[in-house]
Design a protein around this nucleic acid. Structure first.
Lengths: 169, 169
DNA sequence: AGGGAATGCATGACGTGTCATGTAGGTTGT
DNA sequence: ACAACCTACATGACACGTCATGCATTCCCT
């Protein structure tokens, strides 16, 4: 009943052999439960958004940030920092969103290297259409199944892990 | 300071207008914290696996299932059920893994429609190389930052949500 | 037995994400 | 002023995921 992952493996003392501390039963169950939930949740939320509003989750996140911005526009590098995306991912994605008319580029006088990315009217319309259904789905698939205490634990847990990852380099 | 998402929106009674219950402060923070963590975690784990073993997270999951199987082989539809993947995703992915020599196809006498997918020696070697580093990374980025109580809460929470999603259709 | 429905799987098109690399424009030190 | 460096961003190649569709084979019902 044991795979690579649920046995504690104590090897000998051969040179170069690093002993691996595998996951114990509790860790294994929790980690796999998390993986299952996250995969299912992401898939469902993505499908719902795509079907009901023609947006991907990535589109949605970008549009949320632009909507929250003062002028409905941001420098790509600002967007990158708050989304925590790879630079090239953002670049490609903005190009696609521009092609679809969800965002537009604007000149940036104070730094000729870059530009502004601004949400368009179509972009605003898209996210305003998408938001109610998306929030409802987040509730139905996720929040509705959690108690307030679980919600707090989750937030704290997530913040700890995120902080650890950031600190890790 | 408010976007589409953190205000409670009570509209009038126009026909067809559905009132949306937006996320309150706690829900908003928890949900966003979760999204951040999950994005960062997935990205880091994927990069580590790719860099150290030339495998994607998807490859890894497939190989784990095949390793756990009795004969090191499964029918694609069994793999699909336990991974909870889209059928076409699995089909495409197995084709790529086959091209790379990580798995192979075997005839299935008792059902001529399908076949078996079996892990190859190269596949076994790949996951055995990958596993220690991957488990270590899961520890370092995730488990090490959690207490036993948080771990239990997470598992329970994830199971609740997953059950809810399954029940949702 | 035989015809319709369901099952197991593949494929093409297309959007998405990553890595490696390129380039124009800024900044800094001497 | 100019070289070295850094910053902001784009791009090509390629792996990955989804949807729609196609196609055998098997199942089930009469």
């Amino acid at each position: 009943m044991h795979s690579l992952h649920d046995v504690s493996c104590i090897t000998g003392t051969l040179d170069g052999v690093t002993d691996t501390r595998w996951l114990d039963e509790d860790e294994q169950r929790a980690w796999r439960a998390y993986l299952r939930m996250q995969a299912q949740l992401t898939a469902r939320l993505g499908r719902q958004l795509q079907a009901d509003a023609g947006l991907s989750l990535a589109d949605y996140e970008v549009l949320v940030q632009l909507t929250d911005a003062a002028d409905g526009r941001l420098r790509p590098f600002e967007l990158q920092r708050c989304l925590q995306w790879e630079q090239s991912r953002l670049s490609h994605h903005l190009a696609r969103m521009q092609r679809r008319g969800l965002v537009e580029r604007q000149e940036c006088p104070e730094d000729a290297r870059g530009a502004f990315v601004a949400i368009t009217e179509a972009g605003r319309a898209a996210i305003e259409t998408a938001a109610p259904g998306h929030v409802a789905t987040v509730r139905r698939l996720f929040l509705d199944h959690l108690g307030r205490d679980q919600l707090r634990t989750l937030e704290q847990l997530a913040d700890q892990v995120t902080a650890g990852i950031d600190a890790d380099g």
